[in-house]
């Protein structure tokens, strides 16, 4: 990572936790964990509350749908790290790797329901152009998504519009797929807090 403090500036207790994670998972600690545990009162703890509510709070969207949204937002912003990480979580949640790959490859033809497709299109535009308008929202509503579902999707987008920028700006190390697999299992079991 570009800041040494994020790699090795943690306190003794956090470093001991990292050692435990390495032993238990037999994998290196993901850079996102190092980020959220560094001065956690500043960013990690308050952001974790936002992300957990967005990704695991009550919603008409499934966990898989929301992880897929995270992956699509990440791909749109060019954040390879988050795309790989959340593709792995979405694949685990859906138990369907082909569906996730199809969406990331071609949203227009992927085998998903229309409300989700229209929502993902709107999230892509919001991420790419940094704004959307009422017509964009009307298109999502016309496809069958409810206002509540759109708000829930926007919450996911807020979290990953933030995290993706930080992954790129701080230069997260790109680990092998097995590390993202282990991270995905953790996120499906424990969430983001």
């Amino acid at each position: 990572m570009r800041l040494a403090i994020l790699d090795s500036g943690h306190g003794f207790g956090t470093r001991a936790l990292f050692a435990l994670i390495r032993m238990a998972s037999r994998q290196p600690v993901l850079d996102v964990i190092k980020l959220v545990k560094y001065r956690a009162d500043f960013y990690g703890t308050p952001m974790g509350a936002v992300t957990h509510e967005a990704m695991r709070g009550p919603s008409a969207w499934s966990v898989g749908d929301r992880e897929l949204m995270a992956a699509v937002v990440a791909k749109t912003s060019g954040c390879e790290w988050c795309t790989r990480a959340h593709s792995a979580v979405a694949q685990g949640a859906y138990r369907d790797a082909a569906k996730v790959s199809a969406v990331l490859c071609d949203l227009d033809t992927a085998p998903i329901e229309e409300p989700l497709r229209a929502t993902l299109r709107m999230l892509r535009k919001l991420t790419r152009e940094h704004a959307v308008d009422a017509d964009d929202m009307r298109a999502v509503l016309a496809a069958g998504a409810t206002r509540e579902q759109i708000e829930d999707a926007l919450a996911v987008c807020f979290a990953f519009n933030t995290v993706g920028r930080l992954a790129d700006a701080f230069g997260f190390f790109q680990p092998g797929p097995e590390v993202f697999e282990a991270g995905a299992k953790y996120l499906l079991a424990r969430g983001y807090r």
């Binding site: 959307v132 929202m137 708000e151 807020f158 519009n161």
Partner: peptide, 25 residues
């Protein structure tokens, strides 16, 4: 400062989208 920049932009995008949703509904 990097954290503030990231959250600030995500926040503006979120507010823009909520305003668009309110206008649409």
């Amino acid at each position: 400062l990097v954290v503030c920049a990231a959250i600030g932009q995500a926040n503006r995008q979120h507010d823009s989208a909520l305003a668009a949703l309110a206008a649409a509904t």
